[in-house]
Every structure is written in C-alpha cells, then in structure tokens.
C-alpha cells in the first residue's frame, strides 16, 4: 500500500484542471425571513465544479447544505449571487441539465419501479416505447434487472435508492445533485451503495455534487470535498482527494484515507 501514500503527494486527475466548469457559483448569499427577523443562511459562497468531477459537500447540521443544493437545482431562489450551469443561469428546475436525488428515495408509492423511473420522461410526453426502453436500460445500469414491476414498498431501502438514482439519470442530464441519498440506509448498505454509485458514475461521466454527513463516505467518493461552516454557511475549506480510482474498500484502511478524514473532521469541529 506504499504507492497509495504517493498518490497523496502526486496529484492524479488534479493537475489537469477541467477546461469547462459544469457548475459555477459566484458570491451566493441567502437570507430568509424567520420568525424573529432575517436569518442569514448562506454567506458569500463561490465554488466551481469541473465537468465530470465528483464533489462532496460536508458541514454541520443546519449549515445550509441542502438549501445550497436546492438552489443549484433551481428549486429555491437565492437572495444574492449567480449560479451558472454549463454557462447558463439556473433559476428554474431544468431536468435536461440537472437531475436531483433526494434524501429519502422519494419514490411515488403508487407507481412501480419502472413507472417511477419513467416519470420524468412521461412529464414531457416522451413516447411510450422510448420511455420503456430508456427506463429498462437505467434499471439494468443500477443493477435492478427483473425488479421493474415491483412497487416501492416491495423493495429494500438500498433498492429504492437505486431506483431513485435511475430516475435521476433517465433524462441523461450532465449534472447530478444528491442530497444525502444514503443517510437512511444501514452502514453496510450505505458502503455498498457508495461503491455502486462510483461504478455508475464511471460509466456515465456525470458531474456530481453530493451532500453527506459521513466523512468516510465523503473521502471515499470525492474528487474534492468542500467543508461548510455552521450557519451562516460559508465554504471554509476545499480538500482535494487524490486517492486513485477506482476506489476500493481496502483504501479506507490506509493512512492517506485516515489523514484526509482527520483533516475534514478538524475543519468541521472548528466550524461548528
């Protein structure tokens, strides 16, 4: 495992900066009207996510991570600042550019797994054949072949989240936003799902912004980890994770992995 510590100091993908940013956030601030007056929620956030990169945001509870993600998705408006996605501003949800995967799988319980995956396509009136074909392909991609006719209550937590990922990918958006997608899963399933996500990601070359509470998950998944402070949320550190890909479970036991996690933990403790 000596070569692993080398990858720490010799950056891999890090030294070729991405030519084009998929997401660019400039001086974003958000203030919301609370019961006792204006509450600053996010403060002067600037970040750039290169095309095809996997960026993880961590931070204490209530720091505004989810708000930030909702703004990136065009689901909530910011008070100030700009968000560009592939060069164009985001102000409304645009499923062609951005797919969102939520904390609870949020599948529609009255639809089968396949119908759930087809849902975004059916909203824009895609022909039935095309919908079926693409949904089937996504189902296979997330490893659920043969489970298409099951209803959500007939699926395990991990399987539901797989369906949710398939639904997020079905329109083939270049950007995937994930809000603590594995938080409700048990530890073991969570690790497996992280590994699965990386497999899917490597096949689809999406840009991913992923929110989590788990530092292990953050280091395991990310090219880059952004650490946010407690409210008002600011980005207080950016940590490049230079572990080689594909990531393996064994890497978690290495010093390099431990040091990265330690550094994030140190920043979060300071931030809280």
């Amino acid at each position: 495992m000596a070569n692993l510590s080398q990858t720490m100091t010799v950056p891999g993908q890090q030294d070729t900066p991405p030519e084009k940013a998929a997401i660019e956030v400039a001086n974003l601030s958000h203030i919301y009207a609370g019961a006792q007056g204006a509450v600053p929620a996010l403060e002067d956030i600037s970040m750039s996510v290169g095309s095809g990169r996997f960026v993880v945001i961590v931070g204490p509870s209530g720091c505004g991570k989810t708000s930030l993600l909702m703004m990136l998705a065009g689901l909530r408006a910011q008070s100030q600042g700009t968000i560009l996605c592939h060069g164009r501003p985001i102000s409304n949800p645009d499923p062609q550019r951005v797919g969102v995967i939520f904390q609870e799988a949020s599948l529609y319980p009255w639809l089968t797994a396949l119908d759930n995956i087809e849902f975004p396509l059916s909203l824009r009136g895609a022909p039935r054949d095309e919908r079926r074909r693409r949904a089937q392909a996504m189902l296979i991609l997330v490893g659920l072949e043969g489970f298409g006719e099951r209803y959500p209550h007939e699926l395990s937590g991990g399987m539901k989240q797989r369906v949710s990922i398939a639904r997020g990918l079905v329109q083939d958006p270049p950007v995937l936003l994930m809000d603590e997608p594995f938080a409700a899963l048990d530890e073991q399933t969570r690790m497996t799902m992280g590994h699965e996500l990386l497999r899917i990601w490597s096949k689809t070359s999406k840009t991913v912004v992923f929110i989590t509470h788990s530092l292990t998950e953050a280091v395991f998944l990310a090219d880059e980890v952004l650490v946010m402070s407690a409210r008002p949320g600011r980005i207080i550190d950016r940590i490049a994770v230079t572990l080689t890909r594909p990531r393996t479970y064994e890497m978690m036991a290495t010093d390099a992995f431990g040091q990265l996690r330690e550094r994030i933990w140190h920043q979060i403790r300071k931030a809280d």
Partner: peptide, 28 residues
C-alpha cells in the same frame, strides 16, 4: 408529502401535472 411535490418540480412538472400526477393519485 412535500417530497413528492419537490420531486415532481425538480423534473419540471407544471402545476397542472403536479395536481394530476401527484395530488390526485396520492389522495385517491
């Protein structure tokens, strides 16, 4: 559930689609 509406909005559903595709089946 608010989540159901949020999901539909994130996929660009119109108000009418949210009513017919989310509210109605969910409340049926």
């Amino acid at each position: 559930k608010q989540d159901y509406i949020l999901v539909a909005r994130s996929y660009g559903a119109t108000r009418a689609q949210i009513l017919m595709r989310v509210y109605v089946p969910s409340m049926m």
